[in-house]
Amino acid sequence: MSTSPLTRADVTLDVDRTDTAYRDWLKEAVRRVQADANRSADTHLLRFPLPERWGVDLYLKDESTHPTGSLKHRLARSLFLYGLCNGWIRPDRPVIEASSGSTAVSEAYFAHLIGVPFIAVMPRTTSAEKCRLIEFHGGRCHFVDDPRTMYEASAALAAETGGHYMDQFTYAERATDWRGNNNIAESIFRQMERERFPEPEWIVATAGTGGTSATLARYVHYLQYDTRICVADPENSCFFDGWTTGDADVTCDRGSRIEGIGRPRMEPSFVPGAIDRMMKVPDAASVAAVRALEKVIGRRAGGSTGTGLWSALRIVAEMVAAGRQGSVVTLLCDPGDRYLDRYYSDAWLTGQGLDITPYAAVIDTLLSTGVWRE
Rank of each mutant, 00 (worst) to 15 (best):
G298I: 09
Y225G: 11
R342V: 09
D226Q: 09
D253Q: 11
V231K: 02
Q224N: 13
G255W: 12
D276I: 06
R299M: 15
S269M: 10
V231M: 04
P234E: 01
I258C: 13
D346T: 07
K280L: 15
G303F: 00
F270L: 09
Y219V: 12
V329L: 08
E267S: 08
Y225W: 13
W310M: 14
V320W: 00
C238T: 15
P268M: 06
R265E: 14
A217D: 05
V329W: 06
D341E: 14
A317P: 02
C252W: 00
R254M: 14
D233N: 07
W348K: 04
R300L: 14
W243Y: 12
T251F: 09
G260S: 11
G260A: 06
L349Q: 10
L340H: 07
I315G: 00
A301P: 00
E294I: 03
A301F: 01
W310I: 11
L340V: 14
C333M: 14
T245H: 06
V296L: 05
P272V: 05
Q224P: 04
G326E: 02
A274E: 15
Y225E: 08
V320P: 01
R218M: 02
A347N: 08
R291E: 01
A322R: 12
R300A: 06
C238P: 06
A292V: 08
Y343I: 15
T244V: 15
M319S: 02
T251P: 00
K280N: 12
S345A: 10
D283P: 03
W348L: 03
L309K: 06
R277S: 13
R263W: 10
I275E: 02
T330V: 10
L309N: 07
D341S: 15
V231W: 06
A217C: 07
R265W: 15
G336H: 03
R342L: 13
R265F: 14
